[in-house]
């Protein structure tokens, strides 16, 4: 999935003539460079125990990692500025000509976030049903009730398989806790 693949058009894109301006790409590289700076600055805050026997303290490796990240990110920024754009990944279900569907991305992130609250308050099966149905509908599932039913089925099945049978402590939630098989 991380492989280099030829451009759909068969030839590399001419420098700087991509379909989009490289603002997002530059921004990501800049954020990586800033993370590098952050790691270096943060390394200074690591407490070095006094009288430590080791020659290389706990700060040295972080300094190195931060420097690597910073230098590599700067190299990427330079590459982008000189027209060497990154090739977006291809995949079986990726349409190389499609425009970015930001709505889908944001909705999926929101749907996934719902777990943060739902798992603890309404339990695992329902949290999974919400994630599944929400994601399926976001991605264009045709019938909403199928998505909801499959989601509920998946939630209950995983609860039984992982919670009851394999013994992972997935919370069944207040709605199901009274059923003996779920709170075993």
């Amino acid at each position: 999935m991380t492989t280099e693949t030829p451009d759909p058009a068969g030839a590399p894109r001419p420098a700087g003539a991509g379909p989009r301006r490289p603002i997002g790409e530059l921004a990501f590289a800049v954020v990586c460079a800033l993370l590098g700076v952050g790691v270096i600055v943060g390394a200074g805050a690591i407490r070095v125990p006094s009288g430590s026997a080791s020659v290389l303290g706990p700060r040295v490796f972080p300094y190195f990692v931060g420097a690597l990240l910073l230098v590599a990110a700067i190299a990427v920024i330079v590459a982008i500025a000189t027209g060497h754009r990154g090739q977006p990944d291809e995949g079986e279900d990726v349409d190389p000509d499609a425009k970015t569907d930001w709505r889908a991305v944001v909705l999926l992130v929101a749907v996934f976030c719902s777990q943060l609250v739902l798992i603890e308050f309404v339990g695992w099966p329902i949290a999974i049903a919400v994630v599944f149905a929400g994601a399926a509908l976001t991605l264009g599932a045709k019938r909403w009730w199928v998505a909801v039913l499959v989601g509920l089925g998946l939630g209950l099945a995983t609860q039984l398989l992982f919670g009851t049978w394999l013994g992972l402590s997935l919370p069944a939630g207040p709605l199901l806790d009274w059923i003996p098989i779920f709170n075993g």
Partner: peptide, 9 residues
Amino acid sequence: TLYVASRLR
């Protein structure tokens, strides 16, 4: 998943 969703075929 997010990436595929952004450019789903």
